[in-house]
Write a protein that binds this DNA or RNA. Structure first.
Lengths: 193, 193
DNA sequence: TAAAAATTAGACTGATTGGTTTAATTAAAA
DNA sequence: TTTTAATTAAACCAATCAGTCTAATTTTTA
């Protein structure tokens, strides 16, 4: 049977709440209400708000890693098109909240990255993990001759993904996908060979 | 003579404090301490924390606008090189705080852009104002044949500036300029014709 | 089944939040 | 110079913050 509440469920609520509202703007009480748990249970699972945020990021990083990995190993498409499909999908996922929130990793990086070393370390690890997944696919595309190879696969991966983070910043202002689409169009033009 | 405190000085302190620490992470009391003013004076000048943030952004937007405008009208260099000089300079400015803070406009956009309509409207106006300055210079470069013209000047402007915003997100994790430099190298290669 | 451990529950705490209030002081306008 | 308005000053307020505490309950282990 197990106990009443599942850590995983609280992390899921926390992910959603923090992604949409930010870190400092969200109090523990909001998490408790959204997850419908008493404070004692929260602090039974998590040592502090910061520890919670860390686990939320980890949770998200692992799920996203799996998703990226699956999208980039779909052998029905070429590497370049697999990349395009991934970002097409990531862009589409923002429709759910009217393009208001973006990616929790980027949000946290911008909000507290420069101030909180433990959290920025976690964010960096997750990010680099994704980059290696991207770089593998890009490398494949370079060998096939469909992606330019005057820059390393890892550099291109980082260029692509930081690019969409910049576009998220603008997306939040306008609440539409125009900037994401423009970024998509131009980036994939620039990296094709 | 005038009164004891100057609104402009408080805005300058506010700009610095909020840029480095975020919006929700900074309380009015911190601003009061940093600016060395009593609470009564603050609320004499500003209606609320949100109003204050709005005026801080406006203040920054105008100063930055002037700076961008000057850099982009330096006729000793070609348009393409003026752009490069501008971003070289913007990157360098981040050394002061060990690449931990980035741009207040981008930070605020990411932290509260999706939640606060009045503030996101201000941010958007300032951003677009900059974009028109950039686009004018890019247009010039396109006519000279040194910047690719298969995308509109405004689209390229937006692409460039959202690009550096993405790089800021990464810069905050690593606290160095590597990502900024990589972004710079690749972007200016991609947009040259 | 008995004992130990983990979890649930929410009242409580001290510090901090954005903002108000009232009085004293200073500068500008008449 | 007198009156009015703006500014300075800081004590004060209700609400909220992250986190603690103790007791009851439930699950696991022995």
């Amino acid at each position: 049977m197990g106990y009443k509440y599942q850590k995983k469920d609280i992390l899921k609520i926390g992910y959603d709440t923090i992604r949409k509202n930010g870190y400092h703007n969200v109090g523990i009480n909001t998490i408790l209400q959204n997850a419908n748990i008493p404070k004692g249970s929260f602090y039974n699972f998590f040592a502090s708000k910061e520890d919670f945020a860390q686990q939320v990021l980890q949770f998200y990083g692992e799920n996203s890693g799996k998703f990226i990995s699956e999208m980039l190993s779909d052998k029905r498409h070429s590497p370049y098109n697999r990349l395009k499909n991934l970002y097409r999908e990531l862009i589409s996922q923002n429709e759910e909240d009217q393009y208001a929130s973006g990616c929790i990793l980027n949000n946290m990086a911008n909000e507290i990255g420069g101030l909180n070393k433990p959290l920025s370390t976690v964010i960096d690890k997750i990010f680099m993990n994704w980059m290696y997944l991207l770089a593998d696919c890009i490398k494949e595309g370079q060998l096939l001759g469909e992606i330019r190879d005057d820059h390393s696969a890892l550099e291109l991966a980082e260029y692509i993904h930081t690019g969409i983070y910049g576009a998220y910043s603008r997306m939040k202002m306008t609440h539409d996908r125009l900037y994401l689409d423009n970024w998509f169009k131009m980036t994939f033009e620039f990296i094709s060979s």
